[in-house]
Structures are given as C-alpha cells and as structure tokens.
C-alpha cells in the first residue's frame, strides 16, 4: 500500500497545507513509511469486536442553556492578527 504524489497533493488540499514540490516528495516518503505498517492490523481476526469510539463508556452530557462570561470580547480578540470594530478580520470570501 502506498500513496502517490497526486494523492499527497490532494490530502494537503484537504488539510489546508500549502506544499512546494520538495515538501510533496518528502511527505510522500514519510507517509509511505507509516502507511506501509497500516497493513499490520488488516489481517487479525476482529470479527467479535465492535469499534471503540472512546476509552471510557461515555454518555451524553446535558447542560442548562445558561450564558456565562469567562472573558471579555476584548480578551477574546486580543490574539487576533487583525481585528476591526470588535470583530475578527478575515480575507474577503464573497466578492461584490
């Protein structure tokens, strides 16, 4: 089992990572060395098992729908690269 260069580029797009050609080749090698071992768990008998989703038995947790203020708007914005009028600034997504 191995991953092609095109698949590396596709996965990078899904993961929102810009890669140059050198990165693509390097990641192909790194991914293939790991993916090669994924087949280790394909052959074992797991017919009696159902997949775990968590380490412990978890149940849904319901909370009252109450507003609590842990920090102010200014504090929430304090680490933003760009802010304006109390809001995060993002690049334009929809043009006029």
């Amino acid at each position: 089992m191995s991953i092609s260069l095109d698949e590396v580029r596709h996965v990078a797009k899904l993961a929102r990572l810009e890669l140059n050609d050198n990165d693509v080749y390097a990641l192909q090698g790194a991914l293939n060395s790991l993916i090669g071992h994924f087949s280790d768990i394909q052959g074992i008998d797991m017919s009696s098992m159902t997949p775990a989703t968590h380490a412990v038995d978890s149940t849904n947790v319901w909370d009252e729908d109450l507003v609590s203020v842990d920090f102010s708007r200014e504090q929430a914005l304090s680490n933003a690269a760009l802010m304006k009028a109390g809001l995060f600034v993002v690049p334009t997504i929809i043009e006029d």
């Binding site: 996965v11 993961a15 790194a30 991914l31 993916i35 994924f38 768990i41 098992m49 997949p51 775990a52």
Partner: peptide
C-alpha cells in the same frame, strides 16, 4: 505536518473503514 497529513488521509473517503474504523476495533 506529517501527522496532520496521515490523519487526513486515514479519515478520507475510501480509507476511513480500512484504517480508522479498523484501528478503533483493535483499540476495543
């Protein structure tokens, strides 16, 4: 970056059952 790529690959269409679900079964 390598781990984000591996994770995205393992969860992507066509590999989810073979890798992620299988791994969760081994975990159980």
């Amino acid at each position: 970056k390598t781990r984000i790529m591996i994770g995205t690959y393992a969860l992507s269409a066509g590999y989810y059952d073979a890798f992620y679900v299988r791994a969760q079964t081994v975990r159980a």
